[in-house]
Amino acid sequence: MADSGAPPVAIVLNSGEGTVSVIDTVTRQVIRTEPAYREPSHWALTPDRQRLLVADASGNALFIYDPSTGAPMGHKRIADPYQIGYTPNNRYFVVNALRLDFVDVYDGADFSLVKRFKPGRWPSHLDFSPDSRWSFNSMQNSDTLCSFDLVNMTQRWSVKVGTTPAGVLWLNGRVIVCLMGEGGIVEVDPIRGGITHFQKTGDGAHNIFLDERRHILYVSNRGPGQTSLTALDPVTLQPVRTYPIPGGPDDIAIDPEGNIWIAQRFAESVAVLDPQTGEYSTIPVGRSPHGIFLSSMLRQQGQVTAERLL
């Protein structure tokens, strides 16, 4: 991290209005609003940690920001990037093009298209096996989870996992998938794709995150009525605590003090939750905040991704 004078920031992607809000995490005020084209949704950090790539789906572009300040650094035209991620070995950059039904595998170094899969309707979220061999992609409108072999560039399997699968996370040799249509998560065997466990979390289970010390698994529930964030034991998958968070919580990020920053999609705000007390304050941002990145995450060891905060 170069800039020691700059305040630590939160970079919030306002998917409903084509802007990015930069929040000073000390004063908890929006200090700048930076432009994107149409629909910034999710982010990925480049392997050298110098650039934060923001996927602008209907704008057909990757917007680039300085991850430590949120300053804009240009953009790159690619087709419909919704959820994005580097394989753990940084060889490939995988894009779920939700509207176009593509899973596009780009070369991680030069962004040339290596392979295009068309595995189902509305590819939503993704994660990888730690050896970078397999990717796991949820098909939101086909009710399936698909796995690809990134060595042979072939599809390994596609299985029905339940209604409207969204968030995907590799965890302890298993793949966890959130089911928005069913109110819980399923554990999937990464070898054959069979479902080994279902765990209720809350209606509209949408996205899943593992905290830095691997102590707690968080699931955001965006179902009807009161929405919430559920904390689970990452080993047993048993719920430990549920935090009522209004406004449709989506992505989260955890700051060095342990506060959880939560994008509230339908409340135009970011909630900052103290998981000890369960109390939270909110910061107004732009319309439909989706992904959220904290510059403090640059200090973490290993690969920094939106889901595995380690």
Binding site: S15, G204, R222, G223, P224, G225, P246, R265, E268, R287
Partner: peptide
Amino acid sequence: FSIIAGYMEQWVVVPVLFRFHWMAWDD
């Protein structure tokens, strides 16, 4: 207006989507 629309989404529309397995259209 966004906040009113947010309430409408959460308390009127999402319950219908959830009931009929149309949650993919949530966004």
